[in-house]
């Protein structure tokens, strides 16, 4: 649910990073936060446990500049990946404009990826959304690790529609901004359709 303010000429969009536990959702946000011009970003808020696992959400507001005279802001959220935080995940999907699914490329995490993507589909449905209809991209994270599944294999398991797929190493940066830009494009393109 994009919030368009004609009075102050602003568009605010909500992007959610989804994925299994420890796949690198918070790491994506952290990298974006570290590499963004201080004037363009707000505070990175992490509601995490003492062991730095996400408890409720991480939040990062980004100001991207203007399109057609409208100030464009993206609010980036992550969900807690651990299975038992499902109630919180549902809440965070409320009013989402675009979703990034962060998949863990390690072979032993494939089952967790599949489970999480099915969970995403279910939770979107309970909020009245359809994965096949909303702006959505897939990120294959941790490509630098030795025990990764092949890109083809991951695509076979995880691709749900003709979504853009990005390879990434969130901890070091490659693919992080490409993924964000990918979903931002889809969200803004979606605005041009919805009238």
């Amino acid at each position: 649910m994009t919030f368009i303010n004609y009075a102050s000429r602003e568009i605010n969009c909500k992007i959610v990073y989804y994925g299994p536990g420890l796949c690198g959702k918070t790491t994506n946000l952290q990298y974006i936060y570290d590499k963004t011009n201080p004037t363009a970003k707000g505070k990175l808020i992490s509601l995490a446990t003492e062991t730095d696992r996400t408890l409720f959400f991480d939040f990062l507001p980004l100001e991207l500049g203007t399109v057609r005279g409208f100030k464009t802001r993206f609010h980036l959220y992550t969900v807690p990946g651990q299975v038992f935080y499902d109630a919180s995940r549902k809440l965070i999907l409320k009013g989402v404009d675009g979703v990034i699914f962060v998949a863990d490329s390690q072979v032993e995490r494939m089952d967790a990826n599949v489970e999480a993507i099915e969970n995403l589909e279910t939770n979107l449905k309970t909020q009245g959304y359809d994965l096949s209809a909303i702006p959505y991209v897939l990120q294959l994270n941790k490509r630098d690790l030795p025990n990764v599944a092949s890109v083809d294999e991951m695509k076979r398991l995880l691709v749900r529609k003709n979504e853009p797929v990005f390879e990434a190493v969130a901890a070091k940066g490659p693919g992080v901004f490409e993924t964000l830009k990918g979903v931002a494009k889809l969200v803004l393109a979606d605005l041009t359709k919805s009238s």
Binding site: M1, T2, F3, I4, N5, Y6, A7, S8, G95, Q127, G128, Y129, S194
Partner: peptide, 8 residues
């Protein structure tokens, strides 16, 4: 979409 966009 679940709810209409807010337009101000």
């Amino acid at each position: 979409m679940a709810a209409p966009d807010i337009v101000m």
